[in-house]
Structure formats: C-alpha cells, structure tokens
Simulated scan of single mutants.
Amino acid sequence: MSIYQTEWLPELILFSDHDGDWDRYLATIYEAFRTQFIVSSPEFRGIRLGLKRHPMIRGKEATFWHMISEGSVEEERLPDFRRCERIRWPRPVIEHEAHPAVKLWKNKRGAETRIVIWLEAENYLVILSERKGYILPWTAYLVEQGHQKRKLQREFENYQKNPW
C-alpha cells in the first residue's frame, strides 16, 4: 500500500453498472473520454494535448481505442475492461504528474520520444508521444506483471541517472 493519497482519481466506470449492455457501456466511457480530451483543452506542462484521430472506428478516435483496448494489430484490438473502467484516469494522472506518487521519464520507441507517467501506487501507466508543437496521449493501462513493473522501475532509475 502506498503512503501517497490519490484521492484525485475519479471513480471507476463499471461494466456491471450497465446491465451487461456493451453498447450502453461504450457510450458512457466514450462520453467520459470526450469530456476530458475533446470538449476541453488539456495540456501537459503548457503544451497542448492533441488526439490520434485516425483510424476512426465506430465514429471514435484512435486514441480512445488505444486507451480501452489491447493488441498489436490495430483492426484486431480487443476491449480490456480494466482499461475501460479507468477511462477517466489518464487526464488526472497527466495533470498530477508532479505528485509524489507519480514517476515520470522519457524513453524512445523507434524514432518517437515517449513520456511515461507511472502512478505506481495504482499500477497505472499513461504514455504520451511528443510531436512537433503538441503531445499525443498515446495509451494508458494497468501494469499487472511483475516483470513489467521491474522493467519500468529500471527505465525510471536509468533516466534519473542520465536524463535527456
């Protein structure tokens, strides 16, 4: 258990509260995403957050699908209910990046520079991707495997020793 309070995290949006109706649940979690990333103008350290809009699937932006589903093939990604439940978490985590419970660093994925924001107490990770003049929220998910946590911790420690 963490010594840090994260009362700034919103409640989960549970599938069970939607009577097993996926379409109704999808509409609810999309509205939460839309409110946080489309209706308002979020920023990270004064830089505008954009969205990866394409491919649009069922009228919803690629960023949304990356935050609620998993899989390496875009057209074959599957919903992950743990991600769906936490759809209201990415923005508060981004906005609380200076909170003592949050670890933040940069890494490279191919030619892209990514900003990693890890709310370790909740095992929750938000990934941003730097672009010219703006930042894309890329994905967000629970870190559930011990080896994933150890890898993230090593990355964080290495970045602390040699930030760029």
Results as ranks from 00 to 15, higher is better:
Trp8Thr: 13
Gln145Ser: 04
Glu43Cys: 11
Tyr30Asn: 02
Thr63Glu: 03
Lys161Leu: 12
Lys132Ile: 12
Tyr25Glu: 08
His96Gly: 06
Phe33Asp: 04
Arg34His: 13
Leu125Ile: 06
Trp105Lys: 10
Thr113His: 07
His54Val: 09
Leu142Tyr: 01
Phe37Arg: 04
Gly50Met: 08
Ala101Thr: 08
Ile87Trp: 02
Leu136Thr: 03
Asn107Glu: 15
Ile3His: 11
Val126Trp: 03
Glu11Leu: 06
Thr63Gln: 06
Trp164Glu: 06
Thr6Cys: 15
Glu43Asp: 14
Ile127Gln: 02
Leu125Cys: 06
His66Cys: 05
Gln5Glu: 12
Pro163Trp: 12
Phe81Leu: 15
Tyr134Ile: 07
Leu49Ala: 07
Ser129Phe: 02
Gly146Leu: 13
Val116Cys: 13
His54Met: 09
Val39Pro: 01
Gly146Asn: 09
Arg88Leu: 05
Ile127Arg: 00
Leu78Ile: 09
Gly46Glu: 11
Lys103Arg: 15
Gln145Ala: 13
Glu122Ile: 10
Thr28Tyr: 01
Val116Glu: 11
Asn123Lys: 06
Arg154Glu: 11
Thr28Ala: 15
Phe44Asn: 10
Ile135Gln: 00
Ile47Phe: 06
Arg150Cys: 05
Glu31Met: 08
Ser41Ala: 14
Ser69Ile: 04
Lys108Val: 11
Arg109His: 12
Ile47Leu: 03
Arg109Ala: 12
Met1Lys: 05
Glu75Asn: 13
Met56Gly: 14
Arg77Asp: 04
Thr63Tyr: 05
Ile127Val: 12
Ser16Ile: 02
Val39Ser: 12
Ile3Tyr: 08
Thr6Asn: 14
Ala32Leu: 03
Leu51His: 00
Val102Met: 15
Ile87Asn: 00
Arg91Asn: 00
Arg91Phe: 01
Ser72Gln: 09
Arg86Met: 00
Glu155Pro: 06
Pro137Gln: 13
Lys60Trp: 05
Gln5Gly: 10
Arg114Phe: 10
Lys103Ala: 08
Asp17Gly: 02
Trp65Phe: 14
Trp138Asp: 10
Leu104Lys: 14
Arg34Tyr: 14
Phe37Asp: 00
Met1Glu: 05
Ala101Gly: 08
Trp105Tyr: 15
Lys60Ile: 02
Ala140Glu: 04
Pro90Met: 00
Ile117His: 05
Leu128Met: 01
Leu12Arg: 12
Arg88Tyr: 03
Gly71Cys: 03
Ile38Gly: 02
Arg150Tyr: 04
Asp21Arg: 11
Met1Gln: 05
Leu104Ala: 12
Ser69Arg: 01
Arg82Gly: 00
Gln145Ile: 05
Val73Phe: 11
Arg34Ile: 02
